[in-house]
Amino acid sequence: MAILETNDLSIQFGGLKAVSHLDLKIEKGELYGLIGPNGAGKTTVFNMLTGVYQPTGGTIYLDGVCLNGKNPVEINKLGIARTFQNIRLFGKMSVLDNVRVGFGNSIKYSLLESFFHVGRYRKNEKVVTEKAIELLKVFDLDGEKDTLASNLPYGKQRKLEIARAMATNPKLLLLDEPAAGMNPNETAELMNTIRFVRDNFDMTILLIEHDMKLVGGICEKLTVLNFGTELAKGNTAEVLHDPRVITAYIGEDE
């Protein structure tokens, strides 16, 4: 069974149909790309999947559970984590704490135990800190665990966002333009990281990206959006050579 399935997913803002009739089907362990020109509605799709916007039509199923009508917190608990196009880190918190926020729902202790640092607090905090540092090592950020997130260089901020999302233990990871603003070296490194995350954590990843080298390099399947509707979908190589896709990206050949 597909891990994420949307049927006829649509959203309308007033008279504007931002996304209409989108059918996505992502299998477990896939690296799936969502591409399309600017304004095609890719981030809107992410916002519907994570409950920021409620779709005006269609259904979303994650692993058999309907996500329609759920808020972002509930959806995160059900297993979708995301990063943001414009980085949204917890800037005044340390790198370690950013990741530990992600682990928040997987550790249990009461407010009273936090007040006095007793009981389950000690054991759970130790476990969560170890897990967080392990995760930071994957992203090569463990050397900067006490740095404030806003003081990290840009490329590392992008990585930290992925690490933080991974900390919520998702079934599906949504990456919104992870390579935006990166130089070719950083992009190449990021591709390795994304592959590593997929292979080592058995993760399903859906990503939005404009960098065709990244998309072509790591995505197995693609859906192309144009003006909110599906233009093409299928295996990466086929889709990228589809004349309709090329037209949508670089215009009509006169």
């Binding site: 917890f90 800037g91 926020v101 992600g102 928040g104 640092h117 999302a165």
Partner: peptide
Amino acid sequence: VMLNFIDSKQGRAVMASRDNRIAAEAMGV
């Protein structure tokens, strides 16, 4: 009590909500 609170999951949730509400919600806070 306050300093212990700040260094706990509940305290981190408060600071995460301060720094970025949308991201905090997306992380299940």
